[in-house]
Design a binder for these strands. Structure first.
Lengths: 347, 347
DNA sequence: CTGTTAGCGCCTTCAT
DNA sequence: ATGAAGGCGCTAACAG
């Protein structure tokens, strides 16, 4: 019942040889058109489907791309995977998906199963729990094409695609300044993750660029949660001189900020401005709608895949240079920070 | 550089034969422990990694599961895939991901590429654009294990996993009644999709079970959007006798409802109750928090995979019966409908 | 307990 | 334009 039909079956049917059938099916030059047609016909009559496994074994190419993400449940990664799969498909690659669950051991297991599956290339967004990177070094040493995205590590000599967190934070902070807010605070995220570190730097950079002194009391160390947004607000309002705007390191923190501000009957955006980071889905549905920075998820997936395909097709360049693609973040102004009339109109 | 090491290399290293090495590596009974240890050692020394491609060709099992979803960008599917991949992994399967983009042609292409890849089994959530199901009949005829989830079709004789939309709608509607709302309206979704059809039926069923006459003017035909939620509210408030609660067929519609009600300064939940469906992420972050029905996404993924693994392991049952797993939806009461004190406390 | 042999389905020289 | 033959790496049946 199953597939069973092989090129040998077709060859027998047509009184020819497997070699000829193989050539006809791959549209080889030097096979008569008539042959090709008759082979096609017999193939579909017999429900033939090329056995990729055998083909891969022979050719050494599986046309598989292994993708490791922390979790498919996280919107951001779903979105990136969407971008990856769409383009992979166009290039004739299939996507093998693996979740690390933010755990280094799973991440390593994923890489190993990709090795066993003989994938043509690998895309990874590194797990939070990864401190020791030897498994990536191993891949690199084996010369298997690999590209990191979003959660990366520059010391491995592996190509990567990220968005410019510094710039995103810079834009967000400058936007608040442009809206006339004067004391701008920041609620940060875990600093051992480069993304959040860079956002803090971007915030500071924007202040410095505008000759505003950085006030350490206006930087609250959060942990990427609604709760830490609320706590940040409480902390800031206990200060002798509280801020009038907050740039939160990501949208859930910003959500907590909004919620605590509403609790305190503070008018947004008139009295207080808020900007988040990530452009989570809920941002445009809450009240007020949340200004934020878009991370270009789909584009990230596409770029990562394009880069990987380039590596696969041209392994010589693999060891020659480390390429790093930095995508531009996109500031999205919504009601939580749009104090001026013009911008309000835009939304 | 690449993988290259084969069992033959290990055999040569140890002055034995590939067969012995193969057996040692798969922990075959009837191989001395000493052999096993020496083989393990040599294998890791030579950076050996089993070539799954060759192994698959020989054994006929790829340990691959093909999964087709409309889009990884949609939260719901990301979540289901999370459930699928986690469990697949435990069973020793890898997940091949494919997106139909709600398009029948892509869906068929996905199935074909799965056939070519010789996956051991297939999971599909059917695309919106699929009207002709011949590609699924083909898979079924070939006897390849397949299970549908969420977007299913009962006429194909294919096993499936869904949640009970009727029951979810029933629960939501009864919940509103229990909160003392008396005229309950419904904003529906496209009726050619079974899920939304069933939710309408569930709404009607709950009313009938409580001997409440169904008033057709209280059923507004929406199209799954924030906009249609707003329009529904406008429609209802133009009635001579408007409702005091709405069960919306999904959360975005409910969001539109909330937003329009707030616009009209209607107090929620005191004057008006709202329940959505899907338990989208934003529901617990908006004001008021949105009551909704959870679709058990992760459980759905797990069940679908468990069922598939069962089919793979026992192909005889494949043709004998059509199994349909119906998961229980979970009512989530939040502030948009929690009028009584007790329930308010829970949240 | 281990070695020998053969073949999974395909593709690719080499030969005709 | 087509055939013949061998091998990708692994495993399983059959010996010993």
């Amino acid at each position: 019942m199953q597939y069973k039909t092989t090129i040998a079956d077709i060859a027998r049917e047509l009184n020819t040889t497997p070699a000829t059938v193989s050539r006809a099916l791959s549209n080889h030059p030097g096979i008569s058109d008539q042959r090709k047609r008759s082979v096609q016909l017999a193939a579909s009559k017999l429900n033939y489907k090329r056995n990729k496994v055998a083909s891969s074994l022979r050719s050494g190419k599986t046309h598989l791309i292994g993708v490791i993400i922390p979790s498919a449940e996280i919107n951001f990664f779903g979105s990136v995977v969407h971008g990856i799969e769409s383009i992979a498909n166009i290039h004739g690659y299939n996507v093998l998906l693996y979740q690390s669950n933010e755990n280094r051991d799973y991440e390593e297991k994923g890489l190993e199963s990709f090795l066993a599956a003989r994938v043509d290339g690998i895309l990874v967004s590194i797990a939070k729990g990864t401190i020791d990177y030897s498994h990536f070094r191993d891949i690199k040493k084996r010369g298997i094409p690999i590209v990191l995205f979003d959660r990366t590590n520059d010391d491995l000599g592996i190509d990567s695609v990220v968005i410019d967190d510094y710039k995103g934070a810079f834009l967000a902070t400058e936007h608040l300044l442009s809206q006339g807010y004067t004391r701008i605070a920041h609620i940060s995220g875990p600093q051992h993750l480069k993304n959040f570190y860079d956002r803090l730097k971007g915030y500071m950079g924007a202040l410095q660029a505008n000759r505003i002194e950085i006030d350490p009391s206006l930087i609250y160390n959060g942990n990427i949660s609604i709760e830490s947004g609320k706590q940040g607000v409480c902390h800031f309002f206990n200060l002798p001189n509280p801020p009038d705007a907050i740039f939160a390191t990501e949208d859930f923190t910003a959500l907590g900020v909004l919620s605590e501000l509403k609790e305190r009957n503070i008018k947004i955006p008139d009295e207080f401005g808020v900007v988040g980071f990530a452009n989570e889905l809920f941002g445009e549905h809450i009240t007020p709608t949340l200004s934020t920075v878009d991370q270009q998820t789909i584009q990230m997936g596409r770029s990562a895949l394009d880069l990987l395909v380039e590596l696969i097709g041209n392994k010589e360049i693999y060891t020659q240079r480390q390429q790093k693609i930095v995508l531009d973040p996109l500031l999205i102004c919504r009601n939580s920070s749009a104090r001026t009339r013009e911008i309000n109109k835009l939304n």
